[in-house]
């Protein structure tokens, strides 16, 4: 299986490491940590993940190549990767 690194191009899967769900948003940090919503917002952010069947936006790391993180839109059933993009850019393709 080949994954297209946005910089290095098509490379073997073994050069990459999966880094998690790219759709979770970090909750805002209040000035005083005691005010944070630890039991709900932060619990969700740290521990809870959807397990979608279909297209999923993910963070991947080209750990044994250029060592850059990037986003990938992967289909969790077929493993087809519709698009990869630097973290600062939006993904295209798939049915999203």
């Amino acid at each position: 299986m080949l994954i297209k690194c946005p910089w290095c191009g098509d490379r073997a899967l073994q050069e990459f490491s999966y880094q998690g769900d790219a759709t979770v948003a970090r909750p805002p940090e209040p000035a005083d940590p005691a005010d944070a919503n630890w039991d709900d917002e932060w619990y969700q952010f740290v521990y809870l993940r959807d397990d979608p069947k279909g297209w999923h936006d993910e963070v991947w790391h080209h750990i044994q190549g250029c060592r850059k993180h990037f986003k990938a839109r992967r289909h969790t059933v077929t493993h087809v990767i519709a698009d990869t993009a630097p973290m600062s850019e939006e993904l295209k393709g798939g049915d999203k």
Binding site: C8, R11, A12, Q14, E15, G65, C66, R67
Partner: peptide, 10 residues
């Protein structure tokens, strides 16, 4: 030039 892995070594 390319960075990759040979025998698991970067």
């Amino acid at each position: 030039a390319a960075q990759s892995a040979i025998s698991q070594c970067g």
